[in-house]
């Protein structure tokens, strides 16, 4: 059986720790080994790719099998041939991006001329957005242009984004926006 470097660590978490910390003059072996095993035994391990620049460094995400089921560690994937385990400052901080108390976790709504946000449920928000889309579309839909050519487009709605999405999401998003008749569709690639 050929072992990837990561699989090797799994089998020899204790052994590798010894060499790494052997020169410190005290023995970190049990602590490091225990930390590595905790990560491996009490967590789901998934691979991912960094969401920042376009190099696409490999990641290993450890998700707790207990409690809220949140990420407990994100680190470089040594088996990924592009990055070989390396990460930059941004990639190395991805745990903090994921588990961040300032993340948007609720729908926020700001009424016209209001000076504050109010929280809203998904259903209410999506219903209202759908209604606003339909109103704007129906009002600005253009079947024919000035030359009388068929254009079937919605001039009154624009969309920007997003290079932050997965390919499958991007594909569907363009299909959705084009089905609504949008032609003002742009994103990060243009700037």
């Amino acid at each position: 059986m050929k072992l990837g470097r990561r699989e090797f660590i799994k089998l020899s978490a204790t052994a590798t720790a010894v060499t790494a910390f052997g020169g410190l003059g005290f023995n970190l072996q049990p602590t490091v080994a225990r930390a590595q095993l905790l990560r491996l035994n009490w967590a789901k391990e998934t691979t991912s790719i960094c969401c920042y620049c376009s190099v696409s460094c490999g990641l290993i995400v450890h998700t707790s099998l207990e409690g809220q089921g949140r990420a407990i560690n994100i680190e470089g994937d040594p088996d990924n041939p592009i990055s070989e385990g390396s990460l930059c400052a941004k990639g190395a901080s991805l745990y903090q991006l994921t588990e961040n108390e300032n993340r948007m976790t609720k729908i926020l709504y700001r009424a016209p001329y209001s000076n504050k946000w109010v929280e809203a449920p998904w259903d209410w928000a999506l219903d209202r957005i759908a209604k606003k889309v339909k109103e704007a579309r129906d009002e600005t839909f253009t079947e024919k242009n000035d030359q009388g050519q068929v254009v079937n487009r919605t001039n009154g709605i624009a969309h920007i984004g997003s290079a932050a999405l997965d390919n499958e999401e991007c594909w569907y998003l363009q299909a959705l926006m084009r089905s609504l008749g949008l032609v003002y569709i742009e994103h990060q690639a243009r700037i």
Binding site: K132, V133, E139, G156, I157, H159, G161, S162, A163, M177
Partner: peptide, 11 residues
């Protein structure tokens, strides 16, 4: 002022 609606999706 030519648009009524706008999506800023992940940007």
């Amino acid at each position: 002022g030519k648009f009524k609606g706008f999506f800023a999706w992940g940007q």
